[in-house]
Design a protein around this nucleic acid. Sequence first.
RNA 1: GCGCCCGUAGCUCAACUGGAUAGAGCAACGGCCUUCUAAGCCGUAGGUUACAGGUUCGAGUCCUGUCGGGCGCGCCA
Length: 620
Amino acid sequence: MKDQLSGLFAQAMNTLKANKIIPDDHQVNLVFERTRQKEHGDFACNVAMMLAKPARMNPRKLAEMIVEALPEDPLVNKIEIAGPGFINLFLNNDAHLRVLSAVLENAENFGLAEANSKQKILVEFVSANPTGPLHVGHGRGAAYGDALARVLAAAGNQVEREYYVNDAGRQMDILAVSVWIRYLQIAGIGREVSLPSNCYQGGYVTEFGSKIFDEHGEAYFIETEQFLAESLTRSNSEALKELESLSNEELASLCDRLNKSLEELELDYEKKYLEESLDNRIAHAKAVLGDDGFSVFQNTALNSILSDIKNDLSEFGVDYDTWYSEKSLFDSDKIDRAMSSLKESGDVYEKGGAWWFRSTAYGDEKDRVVIRDNGQPTYFASDIAYHKDKIDRGFDLSIDVWGSDHHGYIPRVKASLQALGLEPEKLKVLLVQFAVLYRGGEKVGMSTRSGEFVTLRELREDIGSDAARFFYAMRKSEQHMDFDLDLAKAQNNENPMYYVQYAHARICRLFEKAQEAGIDTDTIGNADFSELGNDQEVAILTLLQRFPEVVEKAASVFEPHQITYFLKDLATAYHSYYNSNKVLEAQESRRLAMLALSEGTRQVINNGLTILGVGAPISM
RNA sequence: GCGCCCGUAGCUCAACUGGAUAGAGCAACGGCCUUCUAAGCCGUAGGUUACAGGUUCGAGUCCUGUCGGGCGCGCCA
C-alpha cells in the first residue's frame, strides 16, 4: 500500500521538478505514516514540510501544489491538507478490503517477505560459558536472539543461528579444578579442603565429582596434606608483598594514578592473590592428574553441561544451526594465523613479555593484550579469529547478541576487524540488559559462581516456555526490565500472552461453533467482503494491512518487541469486535464475510506468534 | 574520574527513529454474562516525558549541561 502511494507521489514530484518548483537535483525522501487518529485519514505524508525549505515556499501552499499534481487513483477516496502541511490520504473501503484476500490466500506466509531474498545474516546469541546451567539472564538473550532471528527471516533474510562455545581457556580449567576438589571431598579429604570462593559453587559440580568417583574410584585421589602443601605454596601472595613494600608516598601516588582509594587497591590485590592461588591450583591439578586425568574432570563437566544447555534451549524452542567451538579455533590454527597477520601489519606488538593489539589506532581507549606473558592467548585473541571467521564465511551481516555488561568490548572487536582489513559495519552488536528478577516483591540475587540463581529451566517449569518467551520479547532489548516471577507465574489476564492467545483460541472456537451449526466455513474465501465496513471492521482490516509493515520495521531495527505490541493491538481490536458483533447471528452473506475477517485475524495472530516462537492454541 | 546505556501516568512498559491532542496493561472507581469462551468488553480518572538551555515549521525522540539509576574501564571471560 505504501509502495503504491509512493508511486503516486513520485509522479507528483517529477511534475513539480519539471515545473522548477523544487530543485531538480533534490533528493526526495517520501515517508508515509499511519495516522494516529481517524480524522487524519489512513496515511499522512509530510513531504510538503520537508520540501518547504528547498522550494522556498510555505508548506501548506506547497502541499496544495503537490496534491494538484497527484494522479488519480481509485483506492484514494479523499485528500486533505491539514495542520502545518500534512497531506492526509483517505482510502476507500475497497483499499481496506483487499488485504483480506491476501491474508486468506497467503495464509501462514502472509506478512513474510520472499524467503532468502535479502541478506545472509548470522545471529550469534546466548553463547554462555559451558560452566553451568543457563540462568534467566541467558533466557532473555535466548528469547530475544531467537525472536530476532525469526523476524529477520520473516523479513526475507537468510538467517543462521550460532552458539559460540567457550570450551577453551582458563574458565574451563577452573571448572575442572572445581570438580576435582568436590571429588576429593567425596573421596575422603572431606571438609578439611574447602572449595575456594572463585571456583564454581553449584550443586552440579558436586554431582560431577560424585559421578567420577563412582566410575573411577580413588584413581585421582591425593592425601590432604599433599593437596594443601602443594597447592598453597604461595601462602603470601607476591602481589600483596609488592603492595606492602611500597612507601606511603608511593602508595598515594599509585592510588592517584589509578584513581582508586587505598581500600579499593587492597581489594584489587586481594583479588589478584585469590586468582594467583587459583592458577597455582590449576597448575598443581594438571601436574598431579596428568593431561588425561585432568581432561576426565574437564570433559565430564563440559560434555554434561553442554548437552544440558542444548537440551534446555531446545525445550525453549531455540535451535541452532551451528555450535561453534572455541577450541576448534586453536586446532585449526585460525588464532595463530590471525595473530601472525596482525603482527605482520604491525597491529600486534610485544611489550613486557606480552603481545598487545594496537586498538588505540582504531579508536579504542587503550591497547589490549592478546597473548599473555605466560604464552596463553586471551579470550580476545580467540574472539578476533572468531569474528574474522564469521565474515570469511560470507555473511553480509554478523549479529552478536551480548549482555550489556560487555558493551565496553565492542570497540576492540570492531578495531580488530578493521586491522584485518574487514568492514566493521558487517558486525552488529546488540545488547541485552539483564532482567532484574522479583519474587514476593523482593529482588532475587543472581551469581553463577555463588550458585544462587534461578535457572532458565526453573523459569520454564514455573511459567512455561511460551509465557517466558513472550514476556522477554515484550521488552526492548536494551531496556532495563523488571521480571516479576510471581506475576509471570500467575496465569491471569495480567500476562499479555494469554490475552493474545485467547483471541486466537476464541476464533478457533467460533469456527467450531459455526461448523456445528452447519455453516460451510470452507467458502469464506468467496465471501462478499463489501459486507464489511463498520468502524471495528475497518480497524481490524487496517491492522491486518499493517502486519507486513510491522515485520519489516521490526526486522530493520532489530526490535522483535514491536511484534508483541502489534499482536496486543490486534487482539484488543478483535476482542472488542467480538463483544459487539454476533458473528453467527448475522445474516448469511454478512456472516460469511465476518467469518472471513475472523479467519484473517486468526491467521495473522498465528503468524505473529510464530515469529515470537510462541504457540497459538486452538483452545484454552 | 572517563566511557556506554537508561530516566515517560501510582506500578510495568509503548510511541511507526523528528510529526498533529504522548498511548496500552495493571492498580482505583462505575457499568456489561438465560445470547458464538467474562482468560473478554464498555466507561471514568490519572502527565510540565527527571531538570535547564539549544537546533526548526514541529522535540519524549537530535545537541549541550545538570541531577538520578545501571553497566564498563584486568596479562578475567
